[in-house]
């Protein structure tokens, strides 16, 4: 496939209380191209965080492997930076100290001045100039998450893994940070794998949105291709004709189809190639059956709420 990241048939199983095993998710296949921004949406308990932890190397799959850049991963790597949900800053270190710690971990031989310069570059990038010597306890939630982002970016990783990075923030801060992350990631062509609960966040940031059905036994139900133009902005994206079909499709999935997916799974469902849907783009190659059933692809752009 020539994909940069290739998740190949991973599963996570736990011993069930009554004997046997419960699979949180089963037979997950996914390819992510270089420079692609992929978001995963699904309800709690579908194993999203476990997938991300497996990608990070912090957790191991019960079956299957993950191949990054042609190599099977074994444990964490500096090539795959994680932005944690709870920011996970070291509270005894300053903003500069936290970022410098990551930089020295990446480049052990660098002299102090070079480390400081690299850290400063990323502090400036996330607009924290002036707060270098503050401790995390003195920062607001948004500023803490900025430090987390700067720390992840400062090691110049090949892949950025984000676990609901903005979920603990208020709406205004979240919007600003989304803008910054989108700006940085498009400018540097960063490969990103992100977990979110926020449909608009996924639509704004991602090139591709993966819908995961409910666990146990969760699967990638669909790959939704984001039809909005790459130069979208938060201010105008909801005016695009493809916006509501896309949003409604995802909402419908989360509200009803995520539960029933396992029960009425199509007979031709292939875990290696989950159905690709492009809501909002009337394409001839769309599966005719889906269109005939009045599937989400046909939904008009009229907002329903």
């Amino acid at each position: 496939m020539g994909k940069f990241i290739s998740i190949e048939g991973i599963a996570k199983r736990y011993p069930a209380p009554g004997g046997g095993q419960t699979a949180v998710f089963e037979d997950l296949w996914l390819g992510i191209g270089q420079g692609e921004f992929v978001c995963v949406i699904g309800h709690s308990g579908c194993g999203k965080t476990t997938v991300l932890n497996i990608l990070a190397g912090l957790d191991e799959p019960s079956a299957g492997t993950v191949i990054v850049d042609g190599r099977q991963i074994s444990g964490p790597s500096l090539d795959r930076a994680v932005i944690f949900q709870g920011h996970a800053l070291l509270p005894w270190r300053s903003v500069m100290g936290n970022i410098a710690y990551a930089v020295t971990s990446r480049w052990r031989a660098w002299p102090r001045a070079k480390v400081a310069a690299q850290a400063q570059r990323f502090i400036d990038l996330v607009n924290l100039t002036g707060s270098e010597h503050k401790k995390p306890a003195e920062l607001s939630g948004g500023m803490k998450q900025r430090v987390g982002i700067a720390r992840a970016l400062a090691i110049e990783p090949k892949i950025l893994l984000m676990d609901e990075p903005f979920s603990a923030l208020d709406a205004l801060t979240r919007g600003t940070l989304q803008d910054e992350v989108r700006g940085i990631c498009t400018a540097t062509d960063q490969t990103v794998f992100m977990i979110t609960h926020d449909v608009d966040e996924a639509i704004y940031l991602a090139d591709r949105i993966l819908l995961m059905s409910n666990g146990p036994g969760a699967r990638i139900a669909e790959c939704v291709v984001n039809a909005l133009p790459r130069d979208r902005t938060r201010a105008d994206m909801h005016r695009h004709p493809a916006y509501y079909p896309l949003r409604n499709h995802i909402m419908d999935f989360l509200i009803s189809r995520s539960k029933s997916f396992a029960a009425d799974m199509a007979a031709d469902y292939d875990p290696r190639h989950p159905p690709v849907v492009k809501p909002g783009i009337p394409e001839p190659q769309l599966a005719p059956a889906l269109v005939a059933e009045g599937g989400p692809a046909r939904r008009s752009g009229a907002p329903s709420f």
């Binding site: 912090l58 444990g75 790597s77 500096l78 795959r80 709870g86 996970a88 990446r106 090691i155």
Partner: peptide, 27 residues
């Protein structure tokens, strides 16, 4: 010591001795 701090050390590939002195000891 909080798991997330240890995970930070793991993702940064911090070797054990450095992890003991820079993460576990201060924590």
């Amino acid at each position: 010591v909080r798991k997330e701090w240890l995970n930070v050390a793991r993702t940064l590939e911090v070797p054990p001795l450095r992890r003991a002195f820079t993460i576990i000891l201060p924590a």
